Amino acid sequence: MTEDIRRAFAHPEERAGLASSGPVADRISLRDHIALADIGAFQQERGHPQRLRFNVVVELLPQPAVADSDDVDAILSYDRIAEAIAAELAAERLNLLETLAERIARRILAEPQPLRVFLRIEKLDRGPGALGVEIVRSRADMANLDLTQTAPSPVIAYFDNPTIDTADLATHLDALAAGDAPVIIAVGQTDLIRAVTGHAPTQRRIDLLEIEQNAWRLAARDDRCVVVATRTEIDWAMRHGQMVVWAPSKIVLDAHDGPKSAEDGLALALWLAEHLEAVKLIVHGAVTLPAECRVPVERA
C-alpha cells in the first residue's frame, strides 16, 4: 500500500504513465488545503489553534455519463471533500491526527462515488518541518462498518449530594433503570470546601475534577454506577442500555462549544442533555430547575 500512497500523491504525468499497465481509476483531489484546528495530545497545544494542511485524493467509480450531461449533481464535488474536513474539525476536539484522518476518510467514503481515499494531514506549526500522517481507506474497508448507526437518545439524571447520600439511592436507581431509555447520571461538586485559584483555566479543571470525585463517590455506593469519561464510552453504554455516571472533564474540555464555567453541576448536566439530544433531564434533589432548556426538564 506504500507504493499506492506514493503514486496517489505523485505528479499527474507519473499517474498517466501507469495507464499502459492496466485501468487507472478517475480521481479528484484537494491539494494544500489549510485549516486552523485546536488539536493535539500535549497540554501546551490546548487552546492554541494550529495550521493543518490537508491533501486528499479520491479514486472514483467511472462516470461515463458525466461528459454528456455536464451535471454537477452526478459527480463528487470538491466542496464535499472540504465540507468533510470542516465537519470533523467542528465535531469535537481531538488529540490525534490519526483519529481525524480516519473520520474524514469515513465521511468521504459514505458518498456513493468514492472507491478509495488517500489522505495526508500535516501539522505546520509544531516544529521546523511538517509533522503528519498518511492513510488510505477503501470502500471495502468500510464494508463492515455501519456509518449511519446512531446511539439512542438517553435520559440524563442529575443527583444532588443529599440524593447520593440518601438510603433511598437504590430506589432512585431502580426507577431510572426501569425506563426504556439508557440513563446517564450527572452530579455536582462535593460539599467539601472548594479550592479557588483565581485563574480561570486552572479553576475550570479543578471544578471538573471535584465533580469527578463526586462521580466516583456515587459509583462506590452502587455497582450499577459505572463512571465513564469519553463519548465512545457513553455511546457504547447507550447502545447496550447501560446506566453510567458521567465524568465530565474530557468531553467538556474537548468541546468547541463547551460551557464557560464548570462550577454548576446542574448546568453541566443540562449542557450534556442538549448536546446528546436527550429524551429529558430528571433532577433529583432540592435544586432550582433551569429556566430555559432545549430538552424537557422534570423533577423526580
Score class of each variant (00 low, 15 high):
244 V>T: 10
227 V>Q: 03
162 P>F: 15
40 G>P: 04
204 R>P: 04
158 Y>S: 07
201 P>N: 05
83 E>Q: 11
42 F>M: 08
90 A>P: 00
193 I>P: 05
217 R>W: 11
23 P>E: 14
255 A>T: 11
283 V>L: 01
176 L>E: 07
9 F>D: 09
90 A>Q: 13
250 K>Y: 04
203 Q>V: 03
238 M>N: 15
163 T>I: 15
297 V>C: 09
173 L>C: 04
230 T>F: 04
7 R>M: 15
114 P>G: 12
96 L>P: 02
65 A>V: 09
142 M>C: 12
58 V>E: 03
132 G>P: 00
197 T>C: 04
194 R>K: 14
183 V>Q: 07
49 P>A: 07
148 T>N: 11
214 N>I: 10
188 G>D: 00
104 I>T: 01
166 T>C: 11
6 R>A: 14
211 I>L: 09
93 R>C: 03
99 T>I: 02
120 R>L: 04
273 A>V: 08
283 V>E: 00
216 W>H: 15
65 A>K: 13
161 N>Q: 13
133 V>S: 03
124 L>Y: 12
198 G>T: 10
222 D>H: 14
101 A>Q: 00
128 P>F: 06
112 P>W: 07
252 V>I: 13
213 Q>L: 15
280 K>L: 08
255 A>S: 15
121 I>A: 00
28 I>K: 05
133 V>M: 01
37 A>H: 06
277 E>C: 10
296 P>W: 06
146 D>S: 11
272 L>R: 00
213 Q>T: 14
68 D>N: 11
294 R>E: 14
74 A>C: 08
13 E>I: 13
154 P>N: 09
38 D>H: 11
270 L>W: 00
298 E>Y: 03
279 V>T: 08
299 R>Q: 14
17 G>N: 05
203 Q>T: 02
2 T>Q: 09
143 A>C: 06
57 V>T: 11
94 L>Q: 07
148 T>P: 00
209 L>T: 08
286 A>L: 10
119 L>F: 08
168 D>L: 10
93 R>K: 13
99 T>W: 00
143 A>K: 08
96 L>W: 08
285 G>I: 02
132 G>L: 03
20 S>K: 09
295 V>N: 12
271 W>Q: 04
230 T>R: 05
